[in-house]
Design a binder for these strands. Structure first.
Length: 508
RNA sequence: GGCCCGUUCGUCUAAGGGUUAGGACACCACCCUUUCACGGUGGUGAUACGAGUUCGAAUCUCGUACGGGCUACCA
């Protein structure tokens, strides 16, 4: 069994991609790369009523931002296409009919109204299940119950119908999940799932099996929410292509919000993003914020996602994509769901900002500042500023407050922080210090600091009491890196100018 | 309700029969710093419960409780 590793991410384009989705992509990608295999993306758009314009493009934009590009997809091409199920529509019917022919499925002509009635009746009977299963299928209108020749007649007349799988009455279906080990189900408890819908499109159950076969998928990974329908897929593999050709399965643990499976609502309610990037619902115009726009680095995003349900067994927590590819293993993926913790997510981002070199941050910081009306100029100053302030930035937008004042003279000064302790002596000090700066030969942190302290001693004022006023004059507020570092980068002219500009505002 | 999956500090997790049950986030204290952070040191804090197997169980088995998922002509 040395089949080439081929895995797939199979989203349905119905909206933004959330944390769980991206993590599924990530684990697929890591597994494929680790084993030198292929990672494909297949668009599962068999439900036309749920089609959302822009959603497919959004998925690819997200993968690109994350650096998890597929080897084969609608956008990347490949030999196993088309990669959009709606374009593969004609492939599915023959498999469904083959199943009918072999006695593993049947035609069903029940109308939605009849199904509804069946469910109502069963409910009032206070039976446990309201499923279309072996206990009731002989009471419904299908090719199992119709008189000889009746089915053919209906079919020939073009009657709306679906094809349902005929679940065995007494069988135990089991398979080995790479994460959970052996999992088994009693077929008598599973309903006769629809395989082919009345509109001729396959349901997920048929499509996933047929396409995984046609695309030669070796390992099928998906979220835990699919576990209950696995027996249907196992049976389909057995009937159609043989169990020996079936991919190996792994069902990933769910990513949980404060209450249950993480949802878009959780994000809005608790104030953290759940989508990878901003998503605007084309129908309602509602915007859901993304990690990207919130100020996360893709490296951090991937890192935090990888650790939500997996670890390498050591105490290492910071991994680059390359390290993840090297160290990832399905055996170390957890079976229990993981609750998402936004505080920890921010910690990852902070670590990655600190870890990142200036060149990796330059573009983002520049565009952020520009967007906020700051003219940045050449890379030289920008690079120095980034190097100086990045340790105090958790999210990218933190760079705005931490560095705007390097490029733009403050418009307002927080004089209230200084005024209560302000006096004539201090004012004299700054007049003198500005003059001293003006004539300074050396312009660096050490020189600035020592001349500041010397002058303070000379004027008999504690240097500590003068630092906050200096900061306010240069920065405008109580923030930013150490003052002398600020003055150094600001340069002589600008530093002196800001002192002279703000000094009168303090009065006396 | 039925079926399936799961259960170690508040959160993410390590420890696959023998450890004072380790680390990280968050929190608290102290140090550094008379901006705010970063950083450093220390601290609070967990094996859901009950049986069993075993000389020995967080680790294996069973039961209970709790949590989650699924139960559509949606994926």
């Amino acid at each position: 069994m040395s089949k080439r590793v081929r895995v797939r991410f199979a989203p349905s384009p119905t909206g933004g991609l959330h944390l769980g989705g991206v993590r599924t992509v990530l684990y697929n990608y890591l597994f494929a790369k680790k084993h030198g295999g292929d990672f494909l993306v297949r668009i599962e758009d068999t439900d036309q009523s749920r089609y959302v314009p822009g959603a497919e493009e959004y998925i690819f934009d997200t993968l690109k931002w994350c650096g998890l590009e597929p080897d084969e997809s609608v956008q990347h091409g490949g030999k196993a296409g088309p990669y959009r199920q709606s374009e593969r529509k004609d492939k599915y019917r023959e498999y469904a009919e083959q199943l009918v022919k072999d006695g593993y499925a049947y035609y069903a002509f029940d109308t939605p109204g009849e199904l509804e009635k069946m469910r109502q009746d069963l409910k009032t009977e206070h039976h446990s299940s309201s499923q279309y299963d072996h206990t009731i299928r002989m009471k419904m209108k299908n090719s199992l119950t119709l008189a000889e020749g009746e089915t053919e007649k209906l079919l020939a007349a073009g009657t709306k119908h679906v094809i349902r799988i005929k679940m065995p009455e007494q069988e135990t279906v089991s398979f080995t999940d790479m994460i959970r080990g052996e999992v088994s189900f009693e077929t008598s408890l599973v309903d006769d799932k629809v395989l082919l819908k009345a509109d001729g499109m396959p349901t997920y159950h048929l499509a996933v099996v047929v396409d995984d076969h046609l695309m030669e998928i070796s390992h099928a990974f998906r979220g835990e929410e699919w576990l209950p329908s696995a027996p249907v897929h196992i049976l389909l593999w057995k009937y159609l292509f043989g169990l020996e050709n079936m991919p190996q399965w792994a069902h990933f643990p769910l990513i949980l919000g404060p209450t249950g499976k993480l949802s878009k609502r959780d994000g809005a309610k608790y104030g953290f993003p759940v989508f990878a990037m901003n998503w605007t619902d084309p129908k309602t115009g509602e915007l859901t914020e993304g990690f990207k726009e919130k100020g996360f680095l893709p490296e951090a995003f991937i890192n935090l996602l990888a650790l939500l349900g997996w670890n390498d067994g050591t105490e290492q927590e910071l991994f680059s994509k390359e390290e993840l590819v090297e160290k990832f293993s399905m055996e170390r993926v957890h079976s229990a769901g993981a609750k998402f913790d936004y505080e920890k997510a921010k910690w990852f981002n902070h670590e990655w900002i600190k870890k990142s070199g200036v060149q990796g941050l330059r573009f983002e910081v520049r565009s952020l500042l520009t967007k906020n009306g700051i003219t940045v100029g050449d890379d030289n100053l920008l690079d120095n500023v980034i190097e100086l302030v990045k340790d105090r930035c958790t999210l990218l937008p933190d760079f705005i407050q931490q560095s705007s004042f390097f490029f733009k003279t403050p418009e307002t000064w927080d004089t209230e922080s200084v005024k209560p302790k302000w006096n004539q002596d201090k004012k004299n000090f700054f007049v003198a210090y500005a003059e001293k700066m003006q004539s300074a030969g050396e312009w660096n942190v050490a020189a600035l600091e020592s001349s500041f302290k010397e002058l303070a001693v000379e004027k008999n004022i504690k240097p500590g009491e003068l630092q906050l006023p200096l900061r306010i004059m240069l920065v405008g507020g109580k923030f930013g890196p150490p003052v002398f570092h600020i003055a150094e980068l600001l340069g002589k002219e600008e530093s002196v100018r800001r002192i002279n500009l703000s000094l009168p505002l303090l009065g006396i």
